[in-house]
Nucleic acid binder design. Structure first.
Lengths: 202, 202
DNA sequence: AAATATAATTAACATTGTTAAATATATAAT
DNA sequence: ATTATATATTTAACAATGTTAATTATATTT
């Protein structure tokens, strides 16, 4: 990287940092180009020298949020023995993260990706996130219980879709109506999927 | 209903009709108060004499769309024998409807409900939609296969969450990347859930 | 037919994303 | 070191949108 590139990356970083702070703080309500720029210490028009539009900037934060989320999960499930129990724990922690940061949920799942071709890699990153978080433990299960590759693929997809669906209903439609009901529903669904795998060995 | 109420209902109907036409036609891009009012044959300010805001108007359309969707499904699954096969067919037709009308998907699942208390009944309507569509056939299964009430409750919730999650990923993130892949994934997931119930009788 | 209430429209405002014009700052050339 | 040029930043301006206020038209009542 030459000087120009270094400086450009720095500027991008300032705007991304500002965006992340706003998203985790005030949330989507106060996320607009003027607030972002103010938080970054620049005028709003400067933003357009470094990003095509605000959507590009916002979606560039996905990667950072995933790393932060993964770190929180790792810390949270520390001590849980590998295998089915860990898959459950990771999945629950994954959901808890989005409940804690609704704006990140919005960014990951709701926000429309304007330029389709450009952001397909990001969409893929989001789609595969839970799979990557649980990959090691699924592998462990496959070996331990001598499971079919295909059964695992289906179970992984099931977990991915169910967590997205539950979060969608809870975050956007407040269904179930209380967090404790939601939490209970999570347990039921996750256990149903993961326990099924264990049973299938029999 | 007195005259005033009749006239008021009529006016609301005009605006709702306009909203539905725009949503099914041009989609969300061109859904704004000015377009709605023009389609209804009134000025945009008139809208505010009949609705608190545009969100109220838009969410009032949920009921009509559900009826339309239910009618399409009923017609589509006509001839499918009741029971597991019909649950599968209904669920697939339910998803196909949202793929056909992305704006309706947005209204049902994505659009933020502004006033929380006011629109909770609507949120509940959306949450229970698939359950209501398949209720008869689940009941049929319960009797035929002598199933546990609880197993059915979990399976229903599973279907509800998985369909929402799959639609979310496909509509908002284009994952899977092609409709045929998506369609295949639907089959796999729906079959996995419904077939499990049949097997559990053994 | 005039007075009053009701409904509808136009005008106006605030917020937002984006672009164009203007200004400041850094780099290069003499 | 000073001027000329390129680059970066900011201010001004625009278009789109949801909403409210002021104005005008229409209906109802006296």
């Amino acid at each position: 990287m030459n000087n120009k590139e270094i400086q450009e990356q720095r500027m991008k970083g300032y705007f991304m940092q500002a965006t992340k702070e706003l998203l985790k703080g005030e949330g989507l309500k106060s996320l607009n180009v003027r607030n972002i720029a103010q938080q970054a210490g620049y005028s709003f028009a400067t933003l357009y020298n470094y990003f095509k539009d605000v959507k590009e900037l916002v979606f560039l934060c996905v990667d950072d949020f995933q790393q932060e989320c993964a770190a929180e999960i790792t810390q949270k499930v520390n001590g849980v023995p590998g295998g089915p129990a860990k898959i459950k724990a990771i999945t629950k922690a994954y959901m808890a993260y989005f409940v804690q940061y609704p704006s990140v949920f919005n960014l990951f799942f709701i926000e429309k990706l304007g330029d389709i071709g450009q952001k397909q890699p990001t969409a893929n990153l989001i789609f595969t996130f839970l799979d990557r978080l649980t990959a090691d433990d699924w592998d462990y299960c496959r070996k331990k219980y001598n499971l079919q590759e295909n059964d695992i693929t289906v179970a992984k997809a099931e977990l991915n879709y169910i967590t997205a669906g539950m979060l969608l209903f809870y975050m956007n439609r407040i269904q179930p109506a209380s967090y404790s009901d939601f939490s209970e529903a999570i347990d039921i669904q996750i256990n149903a999927i993961v326990d099924r795998i264990e049973i299938s060995k029999a």
